[in-house]
Design a protein around this nucleic acid. Sequence first.
DNA 1: CAACTGACTCACT
DNA 2: TAGTGAGCCAGTT
Length: 107
Amino acid sequence: MKNGQPSAFQTDVYEAVKSVPRGKVATYAQIAAMSGHRGAARAVGNALHVNPFFGSVPCHRVVSASGRTAPDFAFGGSDAQARMLRDENVEVKDGKVDLYIYQWRGE
DNA sequence: CAACTGACTCACT
DNA sequence: TAGTGAGCCAGTT
């Protein structure tokens, strides 16, 4: 945000992302839906991009609907994201994750 | 207040 | 299999 203060939407998104357990991943649309903003997958991606609270918000656990990692990951490229996911026991194949196994289904 | 942009998603070609 | 277009939401200009 312009004031350096995240909006309610971003807070909801961050909370949703933080709700993802270690070793699991979630899609942008899923985060949007669980945060109360159904269909706001785009806004979710944008929110994470403009607000990279690394350490507080595990944005590396957020992938596209196809399990694809972020193409322009701001923390060292998609490779860094894949590496972090692998560090959490998440198998990353060619920058992609098996959603059938690692997609978080909690809420 | 209207238009543009984007770490998205789905459908069609 | 890959590339393109339209639809969606929120934020910025």
